[in-house]
């Protein structure tokens, strides 16, 4: 789910950047540092353009200046129970991985309907019920998040497709 989230970040600036363009530099630095990263809980999609940069403060003992920047950003956070669409990334006997943007979702065997089985001999390998449901790399799939886990810089989730209306989507 997407949110607009208010965030704060401290940016340190090397003295060589002190000057009229300091603010620009800070802005760039912020975008560079923050956009597209995840803190583990959510993914920062985009920093909104208004930020509030505090007065700089030289850090004692070093010549760097510290700026506290308040900003708003569009963030994306997956929730347990949320139903999401993604792209199958890789498959193996134990299940398959789905990419939903920055989120790596694993759908394990026990969360795949029993009629859909792994066929490692197919090319490419696929999970299939030998009917119209074929899950292979690149398949669009709809899944329901069962649990999420975040580490610094990475998000991970497991999901199920063992419910109604979940599973591969007809290719458009």
């Amino acid at each position: 789910m997407f949110f607009i989230h208010e965030l704060e970040r401290i940016i340190t600036l090397h003295p060589s950047f002190f000057g009229p363009n300091a603010r620009t530099y800070i802005s760039n630095q912020l975008l560079h540092d923050v956009e597209g990263t995840t803190s583990g809980a959510y993914f920062i999609v985009c920093v909104m353009d208004t930020f509030d940069i505090s007065e700089g403060r030289v850090v004692p003992g070093s010549s760097l200046a510290e700026y506290t920047v308040h900003f708003k950003a569009v963030v994306w956070k997956p929730f347990k129970g949320e139903i999401l669409d993604g792209l199958v990334d890789s498959l193996n006997e134990a299940g398959f991985h789905v990419n939903i943007g920055p989120l790596d979702v694993f759908v394990s065997k026990s969360m795949i309907p029993s009629e859909i089985r792994y066929d490692g001999n197919a090319t490419p390998p696929q999970w299939t019920d030998n009917g119209d449901q074929v899950i292979e790399r690149g398949t669009h799939i709809r899944i329901k998040i069962k649990g999420t886990r975040g580490e610094m810089g990475k998000m991970f989730a497991i999901a199920t497709m063992k419910e109604d209306y979940l599973g591969p989507l007809p290719s458009v």
Binding site: A94, G95, F106, S108, K109, S110, M111, K146, G147, R149, F156, I158, T160
Partner: peptide
């Protein structure tokens, strides 16, 4: 992460190896 619970047995996928 837990993927299945049957009575007192729990199937989980390990974070490290993604093995059940």
């Amino acid at each position: 992460m837990v993927v299945k619970v049957t009575a007192d047995r729990v199937t989980m996928i390990t974070d490290a190896t993604e093995k059940e």
